[in-house]
């Protein structure tokens, strides 16, 4: 009954979180409002200025990072706040819970990033991508890395007493290598270099993702277990 049922159990946890989110809209509303408000502040402050596309590449990821910080801890924090952690302990293995929630966060962040990026491309006129393959691969790898990093940190802060401010504080040093790399790769896509020139960035992003998933796999039980 091991792996086969573990995958379907993971899927069930994911679906539960999905329905729960669709009913309560805790994370989704916070995330969307965050993206919209930050984006409008940025648009106001840019005004008619000519801002370099390289700088705008950085701004895009700042929006994505902070919106991640505003909503992605919900999956774990809400279980902790409502006291349903024990319930999960009683029905599933720790890693089942982790991967269910990781999947949920990745889907949520993926949807959010599509929304953010489309809005950004439409509204920020100074930002134009030349090499779309680089851009799209960067967004995908960035979403995966950011989602994985923020999920394991969310599991940690859910156990702490003061959660709100702690999330970005703990996440930033962990996610910084990823952020610097995706910002760099996005710059490359704006500059329009050939795809091969971004391979180095992609390698860093892929190995970062693998390392984070491996360490989460090894350490999650320690976090989850009371």
């Amino acid at each position: 009954m091991k792996t086969g049922s573990s995958i379907s159990a993971t899927w069930t946890i994911f679906k539960k979180d999905m329905y729960s989110e669709l009913r309560t809209r805790y994370a989704l509303n916070a995330l969307l409002m965050f993206v919209i408000t930050t984006l409008s502040v940025i648009l106001f402050s840019i005004g008619n200025e000519n801002v370099s596309p390289e700088l705008l590449a950085g701004v895009l990821w700042i929006i994505i990072f902070f919106s991640t910080m505003s909503g992605l801890s919900r999956t774990f924090v809400s279980e902790e706040e409502r006291g349903t952690v024990m319930t999960l302990h009683l029905i599933a293995r720790p890693l089942t819970v982790f991967f269910g929630k990781l999947l949920f966060n990745l889907i949520l962040l993926g949807a959010l990033n599509v929304f953010t990026v489309v809005l950004y491309l439409l509204l920020v006129t100074g930002f134009s991508v030349v090499n779309y393959p680089i851009f799209i691969i960067t967004i995908i790898l960035g979403t995966l890395g950011l989602g994985s990093g923020s999920t394991i940190i969310a599991a940690i802060i859910a156990k702490a007493n003061t959660k709100g401010t702690l999330y970005p504080v703990l996440s930033f040093p962990i996610l910084l290598p990823l952020l610097l790399t995706v910002i760099n790769a996005t710059k490359l896509s704006v500059e329009g270099v050939p795809l091969v020139d971004a391979i180095g960035e992609f390698q860093v992003l892929i190995s970062y993702l693998i390392v984070l998933l491996a360490i989460s796999y090894l350490l999650f039980e320690y976090i989850w277990k009371e």
Binding site: G149, I152, I153, I156, K159, A160, L170, P173, I174, L176, P177, L178, L180, T181, N184, G200, E201, V204, S207, Y208, V211, L212, I215, L219, Y222, I223
Partner: peptide, 24 residues
Amino acid sequence: TLSAVYAIIAGVTAPFFIFVMPRM
């Protein structure tokens, strides 16, 4: 437990700066 786990996560992600920084 949590601080040990956090230190380990930071410990495995920090070396990425060695690859990332020279590119920047």
